[in-house]
Each structure stands twice: as structure tokens, then as C-alpha cells.
Simulated scan of single mutants.
Amino acid sequence: MTHGSQTALAAGEMVRYQGQFTPHMIRAHMKTTVTITDRRVVVNKPHMLFGLIPHGYLEAESPLRHISQLSVGHHTSGRRLVLGVVLGLCALSALWQAVADGDVRYLLAFLVLLVGTIVAVLSATTTGIFFRNTGGGVLVASSGRSELAEAQRARAEIGQLLFG
């Protein structure tokens, strides 16, 4: 599974740019594909159940005339960071209860909440290409941190197509 289904092109539509990025280095076979045609931007990214089980692809698109901003870099989700802090506080509370009561259930709750905290904090940062449209929506083509230079080269090429 190196890429998702090919983007269906309309009559007369031509592909101007297509590139693939690897959002997760551990799951290198799952690729995010960015396709720029003369009419639209299409981002085709893998959909994973529980972050592990491949379950198809999600295809999102936006017309070129509605793309208002193109960014490349790292984005940190405040929502996921807050979730990590809340889960961390719950984990400390469960640990406190486990120590006070000597109950194994609270210790198990502490371990589960600790894993949730780590996952929430580690998944808070996204690296990739971000296409903002005039309606306020954002198409994200995630890439790995090691692919940031390639994403910047793609951004330069896509920027020429969109705004040049």
C-alpha cells in the first residue's frame, strides 16, 4: 500500500504537481499524496484505526481559486497539548489514590492514563504542507520531520503554480 487510490481527473484536467510524503517513519508504507491540477489541490492521506490498522484513505480537495495561503513547517495543536495535561493530572490523581488506598485498580488507571498522556503530547505536533482556503479550512499534507526539506521544495514549486 504505497499510496491511495489515484485521483480521478475531470475531462481536460491536467496534473501540474504530484508528490508523496511519509507522515510516520515507523509506518513508512503509508504515504500522503499531494496532487495539484490546473483546477484543484487534492490531498490523499491514509486513514488508520487506533493509529495502527490501515483502513483506507481520506481524500480532501479544494479549488485552486480558493487557496489563500500556503505554509510549510511544524504546527503544534493546543487542543492535544491540553488533553495531554488533563490526562497527566488525572494520572497523578490515580497515582495518589493508588498510594493512599493501596488498590491495584488505581495503579492500573494510572498506567493507562500515563500512556494516554504520552500519546497525546507526542501526537500534538504535525509537520507538513498546509493549504488554507478562503473559507477558513485547512488541507494538511503531513510529512515526516526528515522530509521537511523536500516539503519546502514542494512548497516552492506549488507556490509558483498557485501564485506565480
Rank of each mutant, 00 (worst) to 15 (best):
Q18D: 01
Q6N: 12
T33V: 13
P63I: 02
V119F: 06
K45Y: 10
A151P: 07
A141V: 11
Q20V: 00
L64Y: 01
F163K: 10
A98T: 00
A60F: 00
A154Q: 05
G56H: 04
G136V: 02
R153Y: 00
C90H: 05
M14I: 03
G88N: 11
T37F: 00
L87N: 13
S123F: 08
Q160I: 03
S123N: 15
S142M: 08
F130R: 08
I36C: 04
A94Y: 07
S143A: 15
A91I: 08
P63S: 05
R155T: 12
F50I: 15
V119E: 04
T22D: 04
A151S: 15
H75S: 13
R65P: 00
R40N: 09
T127N: 11
A149L: 08
V138R: 05
V43S: 00
T7F: 01
T117E: 07
A156W: 02
G12P: 04
V121K: 01
G137V: 02
A154F: 11
V85D: 06
L161R: 08
F21S: 02
E61Q: 13
A120M: 04
T7Y: 04
M48S: 03
V82N: 04
A151C: 11
R153P: 01
G19D: 09
S146H: 13
G56W: 08
K45A: 13
M30Y: 05
R145S: 14
E150W: 10
E147F: 09
G144N: 12
A124K: 08
L95Y: 13
D101Y: 11
F50V: 14
R80T: 04
G144D: 11
A11P: 01
Y17A: 04
G19Q: 12
F110E: 07
S123M: 12
I118A: 13
Q97C: 04
L89Y: 11
P23Y: 08
H24D: 15
V138A: 09
G128D: 08
G144R: 01
Y106D: 08
V104G: 06
V104C: 03
V41W: 09
G78L: 13
L81H: 03
T22C: 14
G19K: 11
L162W: 06
G56R: 07
T33E: 09
L52Y: 05
R105A: 10
R153A: 14
V112E: 11
K45F: 07
G128P: 08
I26F: 14
R132W: 02
D38C: 05
R153G: 06
G19V: 02
E13N: 02
S142K: 15
Q152M: 13
A98S: 12
A124D: 11
L87M: 15
T32W: 03
I129Q: 04
P54W: 06
N44G: 01
L148G: 10
Q152I: 04
I158L: 10
G137D: 15
H74C: 03
G102N: 11
L95T: 02
I67Y: 00
L148I: 14
S68E: 14
H66Y: 06
E147P: 07
E13Q: 07
D101W: 01
M48P: 06
S71T: 09
G12K: 03
E13C: 07
A98Y: 02
G116C: 13
A151I: 05
T76G: 07
G164N: 03
Y57W: 10
Q97S: 12
